[in-house]
Design a protein around this nucleic acid. Structure first.
Length: 258
DNA sequence: ATGGCTCACATCGTGAGA
């Protein structure tokens, strides 16, 4: 069973890419981030024609997340209770028929270290920890995935010296990420299966960053302890990033053997 | 060198993203 995550940077603009990618990879579940549409403008029908039903938490202009599945899933949560103001559409959680909880996240970007948006990001992350603590046990089959807007280590950064101290790589953000892993027994699936791989999931639109492979690995799929023995593959699919008018993020995928 | 792309909008410059 394949589970994937993709920040599409506007579902309206990226719909052809997402439809094409679904037909090629055929994941069982796909979490999207940065829909940038209200629910009413979400393309439910086009996905249904490919056999995918959607749970959607949209928002005007910014943010917005969705979970697409080939099998029926139960919507468990579509908001982060206790999140700082202003409330934004950044979390959606479903329960699959196999009893796997999939928590799909769009973590705030943080703008600049020390800015009010950076503080919002840290507060949001604290709320996320409380949310998971409240709603899950370590024994749960739990996938926490999405755009974390955090590159966990220097190996996840094309030029660590250029990025040192910047947002996405700051020690505080990295500490948040590591605490999330240790508190709930979660494993970074990509890093677990490829301890030394320098691969990225996001490249700036500017300065030909993709062609020069100047990227960061900030999109992640974390799995809980009960799921770890089932984890067979984890990869980042750079193909859609090569297309015309791409998202700046690539899809990330795991394969579980149930 | 503080830009560089891309997206949405009570759009045609601005805020936001990362």
């Amino acid at each position: 069973m394949q589970i994937a995550s993709w920040n599409v940077n506007s579902i309206s603009v990226r719909l052809p890419h997402v439809l094409s990618w679904l037909q090629t990879v055929k994941p069982c579940h796909l979490g999207l981030q940065e829909l940038k549409v209200v629910d009413e403008k979400y393309p439910y029908k086009q996905f249904e024609e490919l056999g995918y039903t959607s749970h959607v938490k949209g928002e005007k202009t910014y943010n917005g997340v969705a979970m697409l599945s080939r099998t029926t899933t139960e919507l468990v949560h579509d908001q982060l209770l206790g999140a700082p103001e202003p409330v934004q559409s950044r979390l959606i959680e479903v329960l699959t028929q196999e009893g796997i909880y999939i928590l799909n996240l769009y973590v705030p970007n943080g703008s600049e270290v020390g800015s009010s948006k950076y503080l919002y990001k840290l507060e949001w992350f604290k709320s996320l920890m409380k949310f998971i603590e409240t709603n899950h046990k370590r024994e749960d089959k739990l996938v926490v995935m999405g755009d974390f807007n955090i590159a966990p280590a220097d190996i996840d950064v094309h030029s660590p010296e250029e990025w040192e101290g910047q947002v996405l790589v700051s020690p505080q953000e990295r500490e948040c990420f590591q605490t999330l892993l240790t508190e709930f027994g979660l494993t970074d699936s990509f890093r677990h299966l490829a301890p030394d791989a320098a691969q990225y999931s996001w490249w700036d639109y500017r300065m030909m960053a993709f062609r020069r492979n100047r990227g960061l690995r900030i999109d992640h799929i974390l799995v809980s302890e009960p799921l770890l023995p089932m984890l067979k593959r984890s990869w980042i699919d750079k193909e859609p990033r090569k297309l015309e008018k791409p998202s700046d993020h690539a899809p990330v995928v795991i394969e579980l053997e149930l």
